[in-house]
C-alpha cells in the first residue's frame, strides 16, 4: 500500500494513511461509497481478496460498476453482520464453481437477513454475490430464492423470472402429461 496518492479532493475519511487502514471503500454503480472491513471483505469475497492482495483497491472507492447501491449496501451489511456474528472459518471455500458438497443451511441471522429483502433486492444481491465471488452469501440468497421457487407452478415461475412461454399449447399439454407426477407437490 502506498501512502497518500495526492488525491486531496477526496473526502476526509479517505485521507487517513492507507497503509494503516483496516477498511476498504467500495463504490457502487451509481457512485455511492461504502466502507467495509478489509478482513471481512477478504475473507468473504474471493474477488475482493484478490484485489486487496493485488493492490488494486482504490482508496477513493473501488469501482464496482456492476453493483447498484442498494445491493452493495446489503453486501456490506452482510459482511459486517458476518464479522459480528459467527466465528466460522469453515465458511470460506476456494471455488465458486459447481461442487459436490452439500449445501450448508443458512444460519438463523442469515435467514433473517434475506427474509427482510424484497424480491428485487434479493435478485440484485444474488448477482452481486456472484460477481464478488462471495460463496456464502450466494449460498444464502440462492437458498432463499430456491425455497421460494419450490412450490411454484411453471406459470408462476415465468412471472417471477419474466420468462416468455415459447411452447405451443399442445407441447405444454404433452409436457404436463409426461411430467404429471412433478405437478403434485411434496
Amino acid at each position: 500500500m502506498e501512502v497518500d496518492k495526492g488525491k486531496g479532493e477526496a473526502e476526509e475519511t479517505r485521507k487517513v494513511a492507507e497503509a494503516d487502514r483496516d477498511t476498504v471503500t467500495l463504490k457502487s454503480s451509481d457512485g455511492k461509497l461504502f466502507e467495509v472491513s478489509k478482513e471481512a471483505a477478504a475473507r468473504l469475497s474471493t474477488v475482493l481478496a484478490g484485489m486487496i492482495a493485488g493492490g488494486s483497491i482504490d482508496d477513493n472507492g473501488t469501482d464496482l460498476k456492476q453493483i447498484g447501491s442498494e445491493a452493495l449496501e446489503n453486501v456490506v451489511d452482510y459482511c459486517n453482520k458476518h464479522a459480528n456474528s459467527i466465528p466460522s472459518a469453515a465458511l470460506i471455500s476456494s471455488s465458486i464453481s459447481f461442487n459436490t458438497a452439500p449445501f450448508k443451511e443458512p444460519e438463523e441471522w442469515e435467514r433473517k437477513f434475506v427474509d427482510r429483502l424484497s424480491h428485487d433486492a434479493l435478485f440484485d444481491l444474488v448477482e452481486a454475490a456472484n460477481f464478488l465471488g462471495m460463496e456464502r452469501l450466494l449460498d444464502v440468497t440462492c437458498h432463499k430464492i430456491s425455497e421460494m421457487m419450490k412450490g411454484k407452478s411453471p406459470d408462476q415461475i415465468r412471472e417471477v423470472f419474466n420468462i416468455k412461454n415459447d411452447y405451443t399449447k399442445e407441447e405444454l399439454e404433452e409436457i404436463r402429461q409426461e411430467l404429471a407426477w412433478a405437478f403434485y407437490d411434496d
Binding site: S146, S153, K164, Y167, L172, I175, F183
Partner: peptide
Amino acid sequence: EILLRVPAKPLCRFRAVC
C-alpha cells in the same frame, strides 16, 4: 446457482417453463 438448490421434483416441473 439458484436452480442447483431447488429439489429435483419441482425442477423437473420447471421444464414446462420454456
